[in-house]
Each structure stands twice: as C-alpha cells, then as structure tokens.
Design a protein around this nucleic acid. Structure first.
Length: 157
DNA sequence: ATTCTAACA
DNA sequence: TGTTAGTA
C-alpha cells in the first residue's frame, strides 16, 4: 500500500508504517504476540538499526489472515509456518532443474523460503519482505487460498 | 513515553 | 499469551 508523500516530496511515494504499539492496537492483540509471530518465522517486520520494528499494511493484513487461520481453520503457528513452507517458490520463479538440485528451499519443505540464510536465486540486495513469495502469502484471498485449496488445506467454496 | 531482549509465570 | 526487568 503506497501513499503520496507530503508537499516536500511530491513525486515519490512512501509506505505507511506502524510501530509495534500502533500495529498491536490496530490488530487488537499484544506486542509480545507480534514478536512471537516473528519468532516463529511467519512475519517479517522492518527493523531499524537500533532494532525497532515497523509494520506495513501488508503486514497488518498478513496477521489478520493468520488470525483467521488460527480461529476458523484451526491451525496453530507451527501449522501456518509449515503451510508457508509449502509455497513452491521454485515453480513461481521458474528455477531450472539444476538450480533446484542445489536449492535448500527446494530440498527442505519444512520451513518458508524466507527463513533460509543463503539462497542462490536470492540476490544479496533483495530482502524477503519485498519478495513476491512472501508478499503473496500476506493475504488470505486470491493466490494463497488457491494454493491452500490445491494442497487440501482449505475446502473449495 | 515507547520499544528492545530475555526469561519466566 | 502475558509479564517483568533493565535498557536504549
């Protein structure tokens, strides 16, 4: 979600960000809970150099989706993590057979691609918060639901 | 005033 | 999940 900047920067856009306090109030949950989600590898907030967390609108929606999965689908955080681990990034990024054979993400479906340290297809300059794989799992609608249905985790509607 | 980590109830 | 301690 982008928003026009103020009069000092009329040409650029900036993402709206929320501190952990603002985000937790917006989501009606506690800040330790947001930190716990992060600890489990299912949420990646921005971090300042001093370590302060900032959450985007995509992060807010991501948490709302996960709350839905917990409340209505019956998953726990481990289940959500393993669900994200099943996102076939090697298909979406169309990695070659050769690349797959050496990719830890392809060889280990136990954790999400963004929790791996070094992945060859991931440029050093590219962080997982802006990667399409992480972003596509931010919403409960569209592609993620399609994938979840495809692997039998959600009923067809 | 707010958030951080880590440990613990 | 929440709370506490000692910081930054």
């Amino acid at each position: 979600m982008k928003k026009a900047k103020n009069k000092h920067d009329t040409n650029s856009v900036v993402e709206k960000l929320y501190s952990i306090g603002q985000a937790s109030r917006k989501l009606h949950l506690s800040s330790p809970t947001l930190r716990m989600y992060e600890h489990h590898g299912v949420l990646i907030p921005y971090k300042t150099k001093s370590g302060r967390r900032y959450y985007s609108d995509a992060d807010i929606e991501r948490v709302q989706c996960m709350r839905h999965m917990i409340k209505d689908v019956g998953l726990n955080l481990e289940g959500i993590r393993r669900l994200f681990a099943l996102l076939p990034c090697w298909e979406i990024k169309q990695c070659s057979k050769k690349e797959r054979e050496h990719c830890p993400v392809y060889l280990d479906s136990s954790k999400p691609c963004w929790t791996f340290k070094r992945v060859t297809c991931r440029k050093d300059s590219m962080d997982c918060k802006t990667c399409e794989i992480y972003l596509m799992s931010s919403t409960c609608t569209d592609r993620l639901k399609t994938i979840l249905r495809g692997i039998g985790y959600l009923q067809a509607e």
